[in-house]
Write a protein that binds this DNA or RNA. Structure first.
Lengths: 337, 337
DNA sequence: GTGAAAGCGCTAACAA
DNA sequence: TTGTTAGCGCTTTCAC
């Protein structure tokens, strides 16, 4: 019951179709389409017109297979993470400008970091940008052994892997100085849980309070509002704490929520600080004192590090620390005692 | 000055290397690696072991080129958009479970929607999931003419394109009903700017106030806090407005910020509502009355629509509207008059 | 300036 | 069960 008037199941045109329609060889078409010098102006024009008319598009898989270099840079990302999203967007633009292309490898519940990285390698990416990788270092080392890799946003000490991240230590140190200047003498820290960034901030906190001759009080925490709220339970053991340095903005906001629902005022009874300078921190109702990172700059430098390696500019391992900036808002005030 | 002890620039092993090392043909290796029934248990074991030892990974480009079907589903995404990130994450999981794979096409400043879609098509994606596409409809129609496409999160009336989105009309209608029940008789709307979703919500607002015999007051706005704040300028022409239905949470929060910095109290002097039920809306300091969408359900249904088409389950165009839920919080209260 | 032909690394149909 | 072979659609020498 075939309908003779129905259009043939339109096979997507190949380079051969274009070549035939333009009356040239496929080799010439390839040269025209990749913009290499050689083809005459007349041929170029004709081929381009035919390709356009046929709605021709190169098959990317075939192209990449045939090419010696792919000029592909793979980026792992957790799509639901706002910071990584912003990073990825800037990375994409920078990579574009550098004459490379990006491939995103999403990490989700069913698709862990290892799989994401493997997929990117399978695409024959020439370099990898890992946004806040969480894999065990040894595994990661084995996985990216043969491909230039840049780790963004967390410390990582692997031979061939460049690192670009914010100077968290400086950021936390500034926060503590700020609180001390306000007269606080008992300053606690809500931890970010396991993970290398938490460790950096925790240690920075400990070093900073020690420097001021104060005692370190570390409360178990995590990355989200819930963890911040729960940290309060550990706080109320009457230790006389008047200020809390939270791991990040979300943790801080969760803590504030819990404090206020318990009848305490911020900052009158308790000062609280965050980290990230997120959108929420900026709203006057929140007015969170926090630390701002140069996110876009991180993206640019990470791409730079990768392309520099690919272009043979540098060989040795690089670790780039970007400055942070303390943003003082209304969640911190003079110590009540 | 070549160092004779330096390892040869390790060429990545191909299927031929594995075949040679295992003493079988590359065809057999291919079968083993793709898990097809045929190879004996002994061969399978041996080949797998060799592949493992050599650190062999299939070249994805070669694989995809050789295969008849790619089982690839392309997803366009604005990485910095939180909702799209959440959607993408759930989409990836669902696609995974359906035996397909996703490819993300990021849209950025240098890489617009057209390019993102073209790239996905170039990968030979079998279907496309467009998250909140913004291209002109006619262009979009021509672009996705030959590939099954699902539009997520905005209305779109194109012959072959399925649509999955929240029932914004219902959501806005509920909001207006809620305000009217609180005694408000003069309710304004801060618009979301150009774009199809704004149109839907604006019209829903107009229909809803009309239904209550009230006058429609539409203020120019946009998607972010800034637009919400600016809307205030248009509001203060003493029109006696006591409640504002903002396009989304961000617009609403910007408006609240501006109102309060002008000395007005929310909701005592003015009730304000948002849309999205974002993280910020939930914080007690914000306590924004808003509308919640079933984001994850949208992701699942969108994937379902795509795979159903690919599996030949349905042919006709589908438009799926998901219910919304009014979340009443502290930003709305009794009308002051 | 243009064409011919040899791959790129894999799959899949067919033979053995 | 295993091997052989012809592509997949493109790039890239190397002649002409």
């Amino acid at each position: 019951m075939a309908d003779p008037t129905a259009p043939a199941p339109r096979r997507r045109p190949t380079i051969l179709d274009v070549a035939a329609a333009a009356g040239v060889s496929k080799g010439l078409v390839s040269k025209v389409l990749s913009g290499s010098a050689g083809p005459s102006a007349a041929t170029t024009k004709r081929v381009l017109a035919v390709a356009e008319r046929l709605g021709y598009r190169k098959d990317r898989n075939a192209t990449l297979l045939a090419k010696k270099r792919t000029r592909l840079i793979g980026v792992t990302i957790q799509p639901s993470n706002v910071y990584q999203g912003e990073l990825a967007e800037e990375i994409q633009s920078t990579v574009d400008a550098a004459g490379y292309e990006t491939v995103l490898g999403a990490m989700t519940a069913t698709h862990d970091e290892r799989r994401a990285i493997e997929t990117l390698i399978d695409f024959r990416c020439e370099a990898l940008l890992l946004l806040g990788p969480t894999m065990p270092e040894a595994e990661l080392a084995a996985l990216v052994e043969d491909v230039p890799t840049v780790c963004v946003g967390r410390p990582l000490n692997l031979p061939g892997v460049d690192v670009v991240r914010a100077d968290d230590q400086q950021g936390i140190s500034d926060v503590v100085d700020h609180l001390v200047a306000l007269g606080h003498r008992r300053i606690a820290h809500v931890d970010g849980g396991p993970g290398p960034i938490s460790a950096v901030r925790r240690e920075a906190y400990q070093a900073a309070v020690l420097r001021h001759g104060l005692e370190a009080v570390v409360l178990p925490g995590g990355l989200t509002e819930r963890h911040g709220a729960e940290a309060l339970r550990h706080l109320d053991s009457g230790a006389g704490v008047t200020a809390v340095v939270a791991f990040n903005d979300r943790t801080a906001l969760g803590l504030i929520e819990a404090l206020e629902s318990g009848g305490l005022r911020v900052p009158a009874d308790m000062s609280v600080t965050g980290f990230d300078d997120s959108l929420m921190a900026r709203h006057p109702r929140m007015a969170l004192t926090t630390v701002s990172q140069l996110t876009l700059e991180q993206a640019r430098l990470a791409v730079q590090a990768a392309t520099d390696r690919l272009d043979g500019v540098h060989q040795e391992r690089r670790e780039i620390l970007l400055p942070t900036r303390l943003i003082v808002r209304g969640s911190t005030g003079l110590s009540p005692r």
